[in-house]
Design a protein around this nucleic acid. Structure first.
Lengths: 102, 102
DNA sequence: TTATATATATCGGATATCCTATATAGATAA
DNA sequence: TTATCTATATAGGATATCCGATATATATAA
């Protein structure tokens, strides 16, 4: 149910990996923590079926390491390689969206 | 050919419509002009098969109007509705990526 | 006129992205 | 022990997104 001023546009898919790298560049977090933070930011919380495959994919790429494991809870951290990848992506992001944030 | 520090990550798909609305919120432009600007920003210029369907989709949604037509060149403009949609999306963008820039 | 360059248009499909549904395992409470 | 909650895991599939190939029309140059 969308009112007249609330036209939907631009669902901003494709940014999930970037956002995960960004969040982990601030501090190590576990999956649910990341999902919570994304929920606050985007207004929509990614489901387990979204967040865990994304984490696995980033881990397989060598961007994340499992820093600590408490029971079932896995705390992820950026690897040096992940940090580099994020910095490259951030530069691109900055250039691409220059001027959007007034 | 990617060197070690240039690990690819996060291709930022899904932002094309948003970027088009952003560019047109600055000034009316035609398709190739938009493609040029995106090429400069992202480092990759969208092909005709990418940009024109995107423009059509935004036009069909009522976000764009054809301001002027010179020969084959169509200059697009945001409609009031497109402006509203962009502002909503921008608010979401800002909240989502808070802290990423610097 | 003919050739070339530019701008737009669209189909069909490859791929990426994400979600639903489901499952498993550890922690904790009853 | 049993039940419940939380965190993680993954298959399968729906959808979105984009690109290559191709076509058309206009303007311009030779």
């Amino acid at each position: 149910m969308t009112r007249d001023g609330d036209e939907e546009c631009c669902d901003m898919r494709g940014m999930l990996g970037f956002l995960i790298l960004f969040l982990l560049s601030k501090k190590p977090m576990h999956g649910q923590e990341i999902a919570d933070e994304l929920g606050k930011r985007r207004g929509e919380r990614p489901s387990p079926g979204t967040i865990y495959p994304a984490l696995k994919s980033l881990k397989d790429a060598g961007f994340l390491s499992e820093e600590e494991k408490i029971g079932k809870t896995i705390i992820y951290n950026l690897t040096p390689r992940g940090m580099k990848a994020f910095n490259v992506a951030k530069r691109r992001f900055t250039k691409t969206f220059l001027g959007v944030l007034s």
